[in-house]
């Protein structure tokens, strides 16, 4: 099975433009919404998109994952994502329980909600970016101190770190999809975009 995968990569090198993202969060943190908003933003830039939750039973506080897939051509496949190009971590405390880099492509990107410097993370692969999305969320009145809603701020960081979805599209998608506090959410994304730190 492994062999066919590799073969396919070499074979289709130029053609593969599909980009796959995995979000890690806890139930109730809005990882699925983040995936959906990112998909919506990419869709507005003319991409075909899919967003889906980890197919499971979600409980408040338990680790969850969500996925986003985009491509310049129509997406047929309906499988889960095993080898993401990018991983987004909404809650850094998860990193001791979940292997967030699992399957991440060698040159993939990892965006972590953390006040630390990217260099402080030694993950063995991928390029790390950090953003203190918690601080930004609290500042903009998103959620509470103990339960900040960081899913829109982290998308600003995504835009900066990955660059394949413009911050303007993310702002637009936030305004369309956020159930409440649209403007605050948008601002949080923009601030995060500006403050994202890379290795």
């Amino acid at each position: 099975m492994e062999k066919t995968v590799k073969k396919r990569r070499i074979f289709l090198m130029e053609e593969i433009k599909m980009y796959e993202v995995r979000f890690h969060g806890r139930g109730g943190q809005g990882a699925v919404t983040a995936a959906t908003i990112l998909a919506d933003a990419a869709f507005h830039e003319g991409k075909d998109v899919q967003a889906f939750p980890m197919f499971g039973v979600e409980r408040r506080g338990a680790p969850v994952a969500a996925f986003m897939r985009m491509d310049t051509k129509p997406i047929d496949i309906k499988t889960q994502i095993y080898e993401p190009d990018c991983v987004v971590v909404l809650d850094p405390t998860l990193m001791s329980v979940v292997d967030v880099t699992k399957g991440l492509k060698e040159n993939g990107k990892i965006i972590i909600n953390s006040s630390k410097d990217p260099k402080e993370f030694n993950l063995g692969k991928g390029k790390v970016y950090t953003i203190d999305a918690t601080e930004i969320a609290i500042k903009h009145g998103l959620g509470t101190k103990t339960n900040p809603i960081v899913n829109t701020a982290i998308l600003g960081a995504y835009s900066k770190a990955v660059g394949n979805v413009k911050i303007e599209s993310i702002e637009e998608a936030i305004l369309q999809n956020a159930p409440r506090k649209k403007e605050e959410n948008r601002k949080a994304a923009v601030e995060a975009y500006e403050k994202t730190r890379g290795e």
């Binding site: 869709f43 998109v49 899919q50 889906f52 309906k78």
Partner: peptide
């Protein structure tokens, strides 16, 4: 439609 693979997947 398939559970999750369609039901909970967002598409255009």
């Amino acid at each position: 439609l398939d559970a999750f693979v369609l039901s909970h997947t967002s598409e255009v």
